[in-house]
Amino acid sequence: MNIVNSMKLSFISKSANESFARSAVAAFLLPLDPTVAEIADVKTAVSEAVTNAIVHGYPDAFGTVYIEVNLTDSGKAVIKIRDKGVGIPDIEQAMEPLYTTSTDERAGLGFAVMQSFMDSVKVRSTVGKGTTVTLEKNIIRSPYGKK
């Protein structure tokens, strides 16, 4: 499994950047010739992870959100969303549907959406250091794969 294309981007944790982030990742995947449904799935999952970094990772001050996307020759997109924020004390509990630490109108469904819309979701986190969410999606019709 070789990496055939890759990109990195970083931005300040302002909520206005949520739409930029999901659109940028979606645009980068277009050469893989994804279906409309696949693009919608990826956009939604990226929006969840980026919003979590902005809302929960950096609750008190602005920080930087990092995204890295790697495309493999088998047609897989590997998307990493990272913050250097507060971290998650109990990842298993955080990933339970409806679990939220937020007091505003949050459904507690972000991780459930990521899990149902992507093929794989992995979370690494250290309290006080930050969180990395790795999302994977197989997009079979890869033009890179044919070469």
């Binding site: 939604t44 919003t51 949050r106």
Partner: peptide, 13 residues
């Protein structure tokens, strides 16, 4: 055209 879990929170609220 697009909605994430924030939309679900909005409806429940």
């Amino acid at each position: 055209g697009f909605m994430d879990s924030s939309g679900i929170g909005l409806i429940m609220g």
